[in-house]
Design a binder for these strands. Structure first.
Lengths: 337, 337
DNA sequence: TTGTATGCGTTATCAT
DNA sequence: ATGATAACGCATACAA
C-alpha cells in the first residue's frame, strides 16, 4: 500500500503525531528529530494525503468556482476565461487550487454549490455572476460559508462582492453616444434576471434623462449572451425602430448586433453607431473595430480572489466590496451624426 | 457540529453502515428502511461529506486538469478555454468535477501533479499539452495513474492520448499554399519543445519535399504562443528572407505575423499569404479573415475526457489514442501568386 | 437484509 | 519536546 505517516514514524523512530508536526513545521520539534523525519520521508518517498489532511483539519486549500448557466456556455464567452485568469493568478500566489463544478442549469448549479459546501470540498466560493432570482447567495450567507460574488447582488447585505460601477459604466457609454449627437439610442442587454443587466439599463435611462431625451421602451431588448442573442435582439428592434446608435452590454452580443444591422442594409458606423462592453480581444479586430467599455475583467478576477482569501485568513477585511474601474476604449464603431 | 451518518442512523433506528448503504443505493436494503433513512436524512438536513467519502472509498469523482506553462498564460489563448469547454461537457455528463492546479512554470507543474496524484485528490488527470522534455508523462505512467494527454507524447508507449494528425494537418496547410503557386513558404511555430511544433514542422517539410521545393531553414522560426511571439518570429524572418506565404501553427501568433508584415510594408494577402491553426473565433473577424486549420479544439476536449473516464470505469479500453480530424477553413488571408 | 468492527491517513487533545 | 489516543465521517469485510 501507500506510504503513510506511520511508516515514516517507524523508520524515524518517532510517533506518528511527531511526523505530523514535522509536516506542519511545528516550532517545538527539535532540529534533530525534524532532520531524522525528513530523511525518513525522503527515503520512503512519502507524500501527504491531502484528503486525509482535509478530513482531519477541515481545510482544503481549494477555492470553488461557480459559473453561471452551463459551464459549457460560460467557456464560450471570453469574459469568463479572462476572469478565471485573474483568479488563477491569485490562487497560485496564495497556494490554492481551483475546483470547478460543472453544472448545466440553475438547479444543478445549486446542487453543485451544496455539494461543494456541505461536502466540505472547498474553503470558499467565488460566484461568477449574480442573478436576481439567485437562491444561492441567501443560502450561502445563511450557511455562513465564505464566498464572494462577482457582480453586485440584489441584496448585498452581509455579502462580499466585486463589481464595476455598472450604472456609471452604462451612463458613460450612453453619454458618449449622446455627445456624438445621437438621440435614437437603442439598448441591448442580456436577460434582466442578471443584476448587471438591470444596473446597466438604469445607467442608460439615467443618461437619457439627464440629457432630456425621452426613454422609449421600443428601443430596449434583451436576449442571451451570445452572438446570436445580439443578432436576434437587434432584429427585433429594427423591425419597429430606426436607432442611430446602440449600447450593447456584451461585445460578443455586439458582433451579432452588427451582423443584424448589415443584414438590414445599414452601415456600421455610418448609419448605426455601436458601443460594446467588456473589451474582449476580438473587439479590436472586429470590422469595424469596436468601441467598447473596458470593465477590467482580469482585475475582477484578481480582486474577487484576493477578497475571498483575505476573508479566509480572517484578516479583518475592512470592506465588504470592491469596485473595479472601467474605461471607454474608443475605436471605430461610432461616428457623430 | 455537522450532521453525520451516525445522527441519521440514530434517528432512523439503524446502524451507520445501513445509512451508508442507502446513500450508495445498495440494492439489498429493504425498501422500507430506505424510506425511513431518506426521511431521517431529509429531516436532519443531512448531506454526505465528500472528503470523508473519498478517504474511505479512494474515489473522488474529480478530474485533474494540468495546463501547460502558467495557468495564467493558458487562459490567454482561446485554445484552452475551448478545450476546457469540451472537457466540462463530458465531465458534467459523467458527474465529475474538475480540479485545476494553478502552476507557474514547469517545476511547479510537476509539483501540482504530484500533489494531485499522491494527495489522492483526483481519480484521473488530463494533461493539456505535451512537451518533449516532459517528465510528467513517464512519471504518471510509472505510477500507473490514469491519465490522458492532449497531444501525442514523444514516447507514446503505454500512454493514452488524443490529438490531431499534426503532420497531416501541417501538410494540408502547406500544400494549400503550394497549390496556390507559392514556393517561398515560411513556417512559424511555438517552441520546438512541444511535440506538436515538431510534428507540424515535419508536415511542412514533407509537403515541400513531395513538391520538390527545397527546405530552407532561414524560413523557419519559433517563438512563444502569443501575438507578440508571432510578431517577433515574423520580424526575424523578414530581416533575411522574403517569403510569399507563411504557415503559422497558432492563430493568435498569426495575428502577430500579420502585424509584422504590415509593419514591414507588406500587404496581406496580396504580398504575403498566411495560414493559421486552431480556428479561434477571432480568426473569422481578423483583417483579413484568416484562412486556418480547424483542429476541432472542442472535440479534443470531449474525446480526452471520454477516453479518461472510459479508462476509469473499465480498465480495458480498446484504443489507447484517438485522432480528431482537422479541416481547412478557407477565408481571405491567402491568394494565388 | 442489517449490524459490528475496523480501516482510510491525518490532525488535535491530552498527557508526560 | 514527544507519545498515546481519540476524533474526522464514511465505506466495507465479515458476521449474523
Amino acid at each position: 500500500m501507500n506510504v503513510t505517516i506511520k511508516d515514516v514514524a517507524k523508520r524515524a523512530n518517532v510517533a506518528p503525531s511527531t511526523v505530523s508536526r514535522v509536516i506542519a513545521d511545528n516550532p517545538r520539534i527539535s532540529k534533530e528529530t525534524k532532520e531524522r523525519v525528513w530523511k525518513a520521508m525522503e527515503e520512503l518517498g512519502y507524500y501527504p494525503n491531502a484528503i486525509a489532511r482535509s478530513l482531519a483539519s477541515k481545510v482544503t486549500n481549494t477555492l470553488g468556482l461557480i459559473m453561471p448557466r452551463s459551464t459549457e456556455e460560460a467557456f464560450s464567452n471570453p469574459f469568463f476565461p479572462e476572469v478565471m485568469r485573474g483568479i488563477s493568478v491569485v490562487a497560485h500566489r496564495e497556494k490554492y487550487d481551483l475546483l470547478l463544478s460543472t453544472s448545466g442549469n440553475q438547479e444543478e448549479e445549486k446542487e453543485a454549490v451544496i455539494n461543494m459546501v456541505k461536502g466540505k470540498r472547498v474553503d470558499g466560493i467565488i460566484l461568477l455572476s449574480s442573478r436576481t432570482t439567485d437562491e444561492l447567495i441567501p443560502w450561502l450567507r445563511d450557511e455562513k460559508f465564505p464566498f464572494v460574488v462577482i457582480g453586485k447582488p440584489l441584496d448585498a447585505k452581509g455579502v462580499y462582492w466585486v463589481d464595476n460601477d455598472n450604472i456609471g459604466a452604462s451612463k458613460l457609454a450612453t453619454n458618449y453616444l449622446i455627445k456624438h449627437e445621437h438621440r435614437e439610442i437603442a439598448f441591448i442587454s442580456g436577460s434582466l434576471e442578471y443584476v448587471v443587466s438591470l444596473d446597466r439599463l438604469d445607467g442608460y435611462k439615467l443618461a437619457l434623462e439627464e440629457n432630456g431625451i425621452p426613454f422609449k421602451r421600443e428601443l430596449v431588448e434583451q436576449d442571451e449572451f451570445s452572438e446570436d442573442g445580439g443578432y436576434r435582439a437587434m432584429m427585433r428592434i429594427l423591425e419597429r425602430e430606426k436607432p442611430t446608435a446602440v449600447v450593447v452590454t456584451d461585445d460578443v452580443m455586439a458582433f451579432g448586433v452588427i451582423r443584424a444591422a448589415i443584414d438590414k442594409r445599414y452601415r456600421v458606423p455610418e448609419d448605426i453607431s455601436i458601443v460594446g462592453f467588456n473589451n474582449i480581444p476580438l473587439s479590436a479586430f472586429a470590422n469595424p473595430p469596436l468601441t467598447t467599455i473596458d470593465i477590467s475583467t482580469f482585475d475582477l478576477g484578481i480582486k474577487s480572489a484576493e477578497l475571498l482569501i483575505a476573508r479566509l485568513k480572517q484578516k479583518d477585511v475592512d470592506t465588504d466590496h470592491i469596485i473595479v474601474p472601467v474605461k471607454l476604449v474608443e475605436r471605430k464603431s461610432c461616428v457623430a451624426r
